[in-house]
Each structure stands twice: as structure tokens, then as C-alpha cells.
């Protein structure tokens, strides 16, 4: 884990979320902040993963961070929270899904099933983290139209 790797991870997760915003028609006001949120979430996941706590905890904490930052931005900019959910895009378990698929193709069924279950658990962790952020916000504020 060198500075070079850190810089690449940070800039590329920012730019990847930014370009994702282009083809889901994100309003221009939200592009920069949602990309920053995506970068923050990905870096938190990356640190937790590199420290050896596994990808489930990493994804949960990162999705929680993305949800909380998205709520702050939506209150500050007076926009719906959905605008900032694109910050979850860097967390998509792309590599594990590919490994599961290629294991299925090579008829290594045991590996394939365990990989698929891993992908499902990661997806569940992301969803739970994001919803937990909403729950915390509901406990603090009465939800109006954010």
C-alpha cells in the first residue's frame, strides 16, 4: 500500500462515480458531491479491507458512510437523497461476481456456489448499511421531503 496506489484508488473512484453520474442524468449540482461521497465510501472500504477485517464489514461501514454523507448533502443542497446514492457504485462486488460466473462456466460448482453466496452477502451488507443510515436519520429528524 504505497502513496501511488492510494492516489490511484482515490482519483479513480472519484472519476468512476462522476462518469456514472453522466449516464444516469444526475443534475449538475449533485455531480461533484456525489462523486466525493463515492470516493469517501470506497476509501473507507479499502482501508478496512487492507487492515484485514474482511469485505462484509468493509462494505457495511462504507455504505453507512455513503448514506450519512448523502443525507447531509441532501439537507444542505435541498435535493432528494436518491441523487447521492450513486456513491454506492464503487462498492458493487464486480470481481467476486466475475469469479462466481467463471467458476460456474468451468463447472466448479462448489466454488461457484460459495462465491455466489459471498456476493449475495456483500449485497445484503451494502443494503443494510445504506438503510441503517436512513434509520439513524429518521430517529434524529422527522422525515420531511429529503
Amino acid at each position: 500500500m504505497t502513496l501511488y496506489h492510494f492516489l490511484i484508488q482515490a482519483t479513480f473512484s472519484y472519476l468512476g462515480t462522476f462518469t456514472f453520474g453522466l449516464f444516469i442524468n444526475l443534475p449538475q449540482k449533485a455531480l461533484n458531491s456525489s462523486s466525493l461521497i463515492g470516493m469517501a465510501g470506497w476509501l473507507l472500504y479499502w482501508f478496512i479491507f487492507k487492515l484485514g477485517y474482511g469485505s462484509i464489514l468493509g462494505n457495511f461501514m462504507a455504505a453507512l458512510l455513503v448514506g450519512i454523507l448523502g443525507l447531509f448533502c441532501s439537507i444542505k443542497k435541498k435535493m432528494p437523497t436518491t441523487m447521492f446514492s450513486s456513491g454506492l457504485v464503487p462498492l458493487v462486488p464486480g470481481a467476486s461476481s466475475y469469479q462466481a460466473l467463471s467458476a460456474f462456466i468451468n463447472s466448479e460448482t462448489t466454488t461457484a456456489i460459495s462465491k455466489t453466496i459471498h456476493v449475495a452477502m456483500v449485497a445484503g451488507a451494502i443494503a443494510l448499511g445504506y438503510v441503517t443510515a436512513q434509520m439513524i436519520a429518521d430517529l434524529i429528524y422527522k422525515r420531511k421531503n429529503v
Binding site: I8, F12, L15, T19, P90, V92, G94
Partner: peptide, 11 residues
Amino acid sequence: FEGAFFMFTFT
């Protein structure tokens, strides 16, 4: 660009 950038972070 999204594909190219996320190739670096995912893998």
C-alpha cells in the same frame, strides 16, 4: 471511462 476507472479499483 466508468468501465476503465472501475477496472483499476475493482481488480
